[in-house]
């Protein structure tokens, strides 16, 4: 049984960081990962439980310095309905549209998804493709400090991040997409709704004529954490999309991943999907 001794519901980031500095704590946002994991006996609660949901400054979406600043408590439903997100990071809105069910979307937060760091997490793929950074807050010696890490560095492995125990995720910063950006998101599962990804792909690039630049491809559920398909990106960089380049990129992506087999899919099928769907996304892009 969970031995929770104290439950805190701080009203400010400062208070939360202070409480965190005082000792080991479990952080609760929407609870949609935490509660099922605790019922399954997969998490041990720390003596202190901190409910983050009353911290107003951790919610809300703003645009600053051309960047989207998304508070950690922003729910998937809020992302879906937000004009700024749709305009500046449409791939994120698209991924939100494939996320769970309306009930879960109302509770699940973007920060919870990132901190949970599942390789199948649906926010990770578009954010990695978009070059997002995360802002972590802590109060080591009485003053609130923030550090910013690229998402790619933040994610370490399944359920593991660079977040220190005394830190909490405050904000997600996403550079706005270029005006000539193209984007595609794909998620595969047994059914179209309420499914955990067996494979997911995010594609973001700038398109000039029929050539792609600054190609970024993120893959979900094929490695211990969400990864970039750098070999595939390299085959596409600056090239014109044609059947040969698209096939080469699809093959490169398939060959550079080493997924596992589990209840959702076999490694072989995951690789096949990466190939087929990346090629499909690229030919889709070529046609528009």
């Amino acid at each position: 049984m969970a031995e929770i001794e104290r439950v805190l519901a701080p009203a400010s980031l400062d208070e939360a960081a202070e409480a965190l500095a005082a000792g080991e704590a479990t952080l609760l946002a929407g609870g949609t990962d935490l509660m099922p994991a605790s019922h399954a006996g997969k998490v041990r609660f720390a003596p202190m439980l901190i409910n983050l949901r009353r911290i107003a400054e951790l919610s809300g979406i703003a645009v600053e310095d051309g960047e989207l600043r998304i508070g950690t408590l922003v729910t998937i439903a809020e992302l879906l309905g937000d004009e700024a997100v749709r305009e500046r990071c449409p791939i994120l809105a698209e991924a939100a549209d494939h996320f769970a069910s309306p009930q879960i979307r109302n509770a699940a937060t973007i920060g919870g998804n990132l901190c949970n760091a599942s390789p199948a997490g649906d926010m990770l793929v578009p954010l990695l493709a978009a070059g997002a950074r995360v802002e972590l807050a802590s109060k080591p010696d009485g003053t609130l400090v923030r550090r910013v890490l690229p998402l790619e560095e933040f994610l370490v492995g399944p359920g593991r991040t660079r977040r220190r125990p005394d830190e909490l995720l405050a904000t997600v910063r996403v550079p706005a997409a270029a005006p000539d950006a193209i984007w595609r998101f794909f998620k595969s599962g047994t059914r179209p709704a309420l499914d955990i990804s067996a494979v997911s792909i995010g594609l973001l690039a700038r398109k000039a004529g029929n050539a792609l630049h600054e190609v970024r491809i993120a893959l979900g559920a094929v490695a211990p954490t969400v990864v970039r398909a750098r070999a595939a990106e390299a085959t596409l960089e600056g090239r014109v999309l044609n059947p040969e380049t698209m096939e080469a990129a699809a093959c490169a992506a398939r060959d550079e991943v080493h997924p596992i087999s589990d209840v959702r899919a076999s490694a072989w099928y995951r690789k096949e999907l990466i190939h087929n769907m990346l090629r499909r996304m690229l030919s889709d892009v070529a046609e528009t």
Binding site: T190, R191, D195, V263
Partner: peptide
């Protein structure tokens, strides 16, 4: 199409609605 209780070596691998896939409304 979707439902399967996955049994491996006598053990049920997906004893939850997350991985035991019932048909949902859009399907």
């Amino acid at each position: 199409l979707t439902e399967e209780l996955i049994v491996e070596q006598g053990r049920i691998r997906n004893p939850a609605f997350r991985d035991y896939k019932l048909v949902t409304a859009p399907e």
